[in-house]
Design a protein around this nucleic acid. Sequence first.
DNA 1: TTGAAAGCGCTAACAC
DNA 2: GTGTTAGCGCTTTCAA
Lengths: 341, 341
Amino acid sequence: MPQNKHASLKDIAAKLGLSIATVSRALKGNPSISQATRDMVQQAAEEMNYSKNFIADSLRSGQLPLIGVIVPHAVTLFYSSVLDGIEHTAAKEGYAVISMNSHERYEEERANVSSMRRLHVAGIIASVTQETTDFSHFDSLAADGMPVVFVARDIPTKTHSCVTADSADAAYKATVHLIKQGCRRIAILCGPNSLKMVTDRKHGYIEALHDYRLPVRPEYVGYTDINAEGATLATERLLALPERPDAILALNDTLLFAAMKTIMRAGLRMPGDVALIGFSNVEYAEHVSPRLSTIEDQSHLMGETACQILIGHIRGNKKQVKKVIPTSLKVRESSCKDAKE
Amino acid sequence: MPQNKHASLKDIAAKLGLSIATVSRALKGNPSISQATRDMVQQAAEEMNYSKNFIADSLRSGQLPLIGVIVPHAVTLFYSSVLDGIEHTAAKEGYAVISMNSHERYEEERANVSSMRRLHVAGIIASVTQETTDFSHFDSLAADGMPVVFVARDIPTKTHSCVTADSADAAYKATVHLIKQGCRRIAILCGPNSLKMVTDRKHGYIEALHDYRLPVRPEYVGYTDINAEGATLATERLLALPERPDAILALNDTLLFAAMKTIMRAGLRMPGDVALIGFSNVEYAEHVSPRLSTIEDQSHLMGETACQILIGHIRGNKKQVKKVIPTSLKVRESSCKDAKE
DNA sequence: TTGAAAGCGCTAACAC
DNA sequence: GTGTTAGCGCTTTCAA
């Protein structure tokens, strides 16, 4: 015999000699159905192991109870944690999560967005790639009535909701920390300016230098694509400057670890010759030697928050929400000039 | 005006004065439709930006083009990489991926399975929790005709397909490596025996001891739940033995890093007092001090392979497949007695 | 070569 | 209180 197809309303109706509509109403506790019938239907449904086929609903509503998530780099503790936060909240609200990885590539991101649209997901949470400078693929979703919330990496457009870290603030604090350690030639290792995350963090860095009357030197702003190779080259360029930086602030995990390796390989002492601090969610930062100072963001909470906002939009809330999640500075060995050396 | 609903076959038919059936056939190149009509329909479809609503199909087939994935611990490089491999293969074959995290809890796993079933996914890829000893929730999927493939952590039942690492082999090689370093009191840090992954790896460890005529001492087999707290306690117990082990083999990332911290905190030298090696996919293993020796598995490939097998089953292949993916031993400082100390 | 109609499972508007 | 019917978008007989 073929596979046990799930029991349907029709089956229950047939068994009980009722109409499909009555069964449907009884099952959702419609008060216009007599208590006796309701009980009878309830029991039959349980016996037959009935579960509602939500695809039928979806056909009518044109929307599946699914939330689409697009991240640029899924195989990281940061994004897997964001994803877990999203899943957590989504599950509580009756949504499942479909995730896709754009691998930091614009073309893949576009393809992901169109897959999501074809899938008729109820809404999308996205973190853009470092290549993305054109945002029309997202705009067209809005035109279609599919809500979008950006997480971690926002886009410049003003009309979307987003959840981000307190980037400028965190970079400011980290820079001040370095200044207080006696660093005067502080470099920053950046991703592309197309990411608002980057410009925000750079802004915090510059503000701190201004406030402490230190010059902002263009040669100390190292740009790179966000990958290990690029970051290694950019760090090497910084270290080769006539006036070598005495500190580096790295804008994310990838950049931070690449910078660390490059500094060590150059035979420089850390923090003696070059202090290092960076944005990171890698718990291993505290196990490497020297223990790395980091700015941690609350990735899980960012995911949960983004999902809550998105579900709000799905349910009809039109107001955009821009939420900032605090980070925390973890001072460890790599940025402490006065610490044990 | 309301949201731009997608154009449907009906819209195209109306515009062209054809029947819905004709449009449907024309769009899939049915040869019984005249070339002229086909061209006309094709063009209209493009103009109207038509895309097929697959929910309608799904209602009829009772199945969505979705693959469900259940992992015990999503926020790890191992599982996020497995997931990325699955997504990669799924996307190529026209499936999207729904992932859920059981957080190593049996009850969550059961809930995940029933969510997946409610969602009418086409098939499931799962890695069981360390608490799972009853597998009836998976068996009932099979009864429903929903294929399941296990990845990384298999279950004892013989009838399912699975993709696993060459656990016994890898543990054997790692143990032999330790023996060749002069270790004679080799301990193993295990998860629960309910995981086949654990018994397989333990088997390899025991075989190696046998082959080199070393005694298998029960007190050197440290059991723990797979989490940092449990692993720390288990390591402490091992280190407190009258005859302290001179080497530890840890069965996964979590256990490995917990063991490392515990050994260091006890003030013991590594590898001098205790050598350490473990299964891990954490690239940071090579940045900690001392650099950690590891057994790496090909997580991405495991995901791709599992997905290929699953899609085979979805398409009707009934033959079970058991695939073993090779690992590689990365010898670094933490397990080399003769290395620089 | 094309059209009409049934049906996938469910809900809601409209009877009675 | 309960039944009937239409319809969500599509495929697929069956007719013409």
